[in-house]
Design a protein around this nucleic acid. Structure first.
Length: 798
DNA sequence: ATAGCGCGAATATAGACAGCATGTC
DNA sequence: CTATATTCGCGCTAT
């Protein structure tokens, strides 16, 4: 079937596709058309990665738009949202407007309602529904990308419920679901009343096999000699082998550390295959990477990249990730050692995929658990770049014959697992039942159960009463916490319940936050020290106040010396019951189920028990008993997370934080983002419930947002001034925006270095004559800044 | 005494959505 | 019960 033969698409689309080299549709695409994707039919397409799934979605969306409707494309990751948006934007020439909406990014310009295609994450769509975005009612086509993720314990239920809601709002909504090949695609199609396109067809051949001994044994019976050198290392041998043919490799491993060490070793292999020009380009790229962040992770990555290798995991900042991904696509980086981030993330195809680790540590399992077949298939599916490689190779590694057999059986010949709904679990239903009631989808227990009948869970569990019993448990919970009211059979959301639903909070997080803030309101009596009396753990000097600065325990805060006394004054002494310390609030949001806490490593337990002893009065709520192991440990890891946030909000350098808490720049960013979001929610809740701590909450939020101490908040309000510049201005004697407006230009220039920067900043603060022409930097101001940097450097070496 | 070494023991282990209103060094 | 790369820490030896 030729693209130009398709009917129902905007004029020119078929020709455009032909221009892109699409001479005829791939068989699964043609089948989808036959089943009616372009005529508004529901379709589930379960086909391998890189087999043209996206085009199926595009055909559905474009024809829906041509019929006068609007389409929504749901993705599982924010990074995928921007990738898809960029892809769909090529239709703008044919009159199609594309918009994105995710938590951290919304396309600017016109309101989303005016777009023809909107790309959004499932949580964002859920949130839009909860907040009653009007254009949701007008959708005519929804596409769910990677629907097999309904199997995910945390996020699957959101996609499941969201699809059910969208279909309920609009009975004529065309639903297109794209899935990896799974064991039970028919069941998914059944759920969505859809036609099924289930195919193993691929545009380029994928050869799968297991490397054992000195050869890869492919599933098709062929072999390829890849001798391992004396060291017996399979991975380098395979990477080297691919490079000999001019191809690049993707290596999947099971931990961040393994990714980093593998990348570093593989740099030895790739380094031998580089041209002089590549070497030069890689040096530049390495410098860019080093500039992204001032952390050891960043340096290590830059070192690897200089040799043409890279690692990739969630500890990287998003800038790191895209630099690495782009360079890999440009074939500059020859090998990436990655954790599963890359298997599900943006498109990074590779000639050869090496699945080195097929088991991953799982504490619940009690050891190394084999990965799901589906997950391994996702990794293997990254092999082969359409149009560039004649075929792709996916290789698993075995160190003995038994393993080889097992790998063949499990992953190469084995079927992927069926997708199972995870909806009947308390955490999932807590949030979704509240939202269902709050948005008026159901107002009695019966209606709720009837609504839940539209989910995959219902399809898969006929006659199973679990959903019903969890529903009752959850309704009781929501009632007990006053998020819903029950009047006879009628269930309605309370005012605060509505707010919680709209803020997209887990009701349990909301309850924890509300409880904590109420507790603080009650003053100190309610939270007498439960945990003290461990005499001798640390110095006795501060016992009377129970207050110690952040730096006494983990002492090396660079600004501690200069600021220690002031801080003591504003600390958590509590003579004003309404004043809550930032640490208390960071701890409060950190122990919420919406925050993914930092691990307690060995030795951390002791450290944070001591920290708890020092700072317990600042924390909101009762410390759990030391003998309640689970709760106590959570309390401590929340404290660790809170301390990290406090460090960030006290201008501690990124590299120090990374080192102290054993995290990468990406983790810091992630925790800070989450804290910002939760503190914003806390502020709203406090406002609505008339709690007196709104000011403390707002300030803690602003501090974590800008990463500064309290005294810099005024300065960081100026566009172009962040934590570093604000501190330098402050050191130079400029402490407020007003002072900045009237400040001596030479002092400003000295503190801010660059002339252009200084001018921009002055302009942003509203100064009438921002020009720095003829101004020379004030020596004192310059020195103030430099001394501070030196101080940090030497402390960093400590 | 001490630096240097080998070897068994100990240690640690993936990922990432949401609100709101705009911009770091 | 299951793995593995890496670091830690001990006791040993050669200097």
């Amino acid at each position: 079937m030729k693209p130009t033969e398709l009917s129902g698409l905007p004029a020119g689309v078929g020709e455009h596709l032909e221009g892109e080299g699409v001479e005829s549709l791939y068989p699964p695409q043609a089948e989808a058309v036959e089943r009616g994707v372009t005529d508004g039919e529901n379709v589930v397409a379960a086909v391998p990665t890189a087999s043209g799934k996206t085009l199926i979605a595009e055909l559905a969306m474009l024809s829906a738009v041509e019929r006068g409707g609007t389409a929504l494309y749901i993705v599982p990751l924010r990074a995928l949202a921007s990738e898809k948006k960029a892809e769909f934007e090529r239709w703008e020439a044919y009159g199609i407007d594309v918009g994105v909406s995710t938590g951290n990014y919304e396309s600017d310009g016109e309101w989303l309602a005016s777009r023809d295609i909107v790309v959004a994450t499932s949580e964002k769509v859920d949130s839009l529904v909860r907040n009653g975005a009007p254009w949701i009612d007008d959708l005519s086509c929804v596409v769910a990308d990677e629907v097999h993720l309904v199997d995910d314990r945390e996020r699957g239920p959101t996609l499941e419920v969201t699809l059910a809601k969208l279909r309920r709002i609009n009975a004529n909504l065309q639903t297109v679901a794209l899935s990896a090949t799974v064991g039970n695609a028919a069941e998914i199609a059944d759920w969505l009343d859809a036609e099924l396109v289930d195919s193993d067809w691929r545009p380029i051949d994928l050869k799968t096999g297991v490397h054992f001994g000195n050869a890869i044994n492919f599933a098709d019976g062929s072999q390829r000699e890849v001798p391992v050198d004396s060291g017996g290392k399979q991975t380098p041998a395979l990477v080297d082998d691919t490079l000999d043919e001019g191809g690049s490799s993707l290596v999947f491993v099971n931990s961040r550390r393994n990714a980093e060490s593998a990348a570093s070793r593989l740099g030895g292999v790739t380094g031998d295959h580089l041209s002089d020009q590549e070497r030069g380009e890689l040096r530049e790229l390495a410098a860019d990477i080093r500039d992204v962040s001032d952390t050891a992770t960043s340096d290590d990555l830059a070192d690897c990249v200089a040799d043409g290798a890279a690692f990739h995991h969630a500890g990287l900042s998003s800038e790191h990730r895209s630099l690495v991904e782009d360079a890999f696509r440009d074939r500059l980086i020859k090998v990436i050692a990655a954790t599963p981030t890359l298997a599900a993330g943006v498109n990074t195809p590779s000639r050869r995929v090496i699945v080195r680790d097929w088991r991953r540590y799982d504490p619940e399992f009690g050891g190394m658990k084999p990965l799901d077949t589906l997950e391994i298939h996702q990794m293997m599916g990254r092999a082969g770049r359409p149009g560039l490689d004649p075929y792709g190779e996916a290789v698993l590694l075995a160190s003995n014959n038994d393993t080889k057999e097992e790998l063949f059986e499990r992953y190469i010949d084995g079927e992927p697992e069926p997708v199972r709904s995870k909806l009947a679990a308390e955490p999932a239903l807590r949030t979704h039942l509240l939202a269902t009631v709050a948005s008026g989808f159901a107002n009695t227990r019966e209606e709720i159960l009837e609504f839940l009948d539209n989910t995959l869970y219902a399809v898969q569990s006929a006659g199973n009463a679990q959903l019903e019993s969890v529903t009752d448990t959850v309704l009781n919970y929501l009632d007990a916490n006053e998020f819903v009211d029950r009047d006879g059979d009628t269930i309605t959301a309370t005012e605060i319940g509505h707010t919680v639903s709209r803020l997209y909070l887990d009701p349990m997080s909301a309850a924890e936050i509300i409880g904590g803030l109420r507790d603080a309101e009650g003053g100190d009596d309610g939270r007498a020290r439960q945990y003290g009396s461990r005499g001798g753990l640390s110095g006795d000097a501060d016992e009377s106040t129970g207050f110690t600065t952040a730096n006494d325990l983990l002492d090396d805060d660079p600004l501690a010396d200069a600021e220690g006394e002031e801080e003591g004054a504003s600390g958590g002494d509590g003579d004003d019951a309404d004043e809550i310390s930032a640490l208390g609030l960071y701890h409060l949001v950190s122990r919420t189920p919406d925050m993914y806490q930092l691990y307690l490593k060995s030795g951390d337990r002791e450290t944070y028990e001591e920290e708890l002893f020092e700072r317990e009065t600042e924390l909101l709520g009762r410390t759990p008993s030391e003998y309640d192991d689970v709760a106590f440990e959570e309390w401590l890891s929340a404290l660790k997370t809170a301390r990290m946030l406090e460090d960030w909000a006290s201008e501690v350098d990124e590299d120090r934080i990374a080192e102290r808490y054993g995290v990468g720049p990406g983790d810091i960013r992630g925790k800070v983002d989450t804290a910002e979001w939760l503190l914003n929610a806390a502020e709203r809740l406090a406002g609505e419930l008339d709690l007196p701590n709104v000011v403390s909450v707002r300030e803690a939020k602003k501090r974590v947002e800008d990463g500064v101490r309290e005294e810099l908040l005024d300065l960081t309000g100026v566009r172009g001034v962040g934590r570093k510049r604000a501190r330098r201005l402050f050191e130079a004697g400029i402490e407020t925006r007003a002072e900045l407006r009237d400040a001596d230009k030479s002092v400003v220039l000295g503190a801010l270095r660059g002339q252009k920067t200084a001018e921009t900043v002055l302009e942003n603060v509203g100064r009438e004559d921002p020009s720095m022409d003829g101004v020379s930097a004030d020596a004192d101001a310059k020195r103030a800044g430099r001394e501070e940097e030196d101080g940090q450097a030497s402390l960093g070496d400590f």
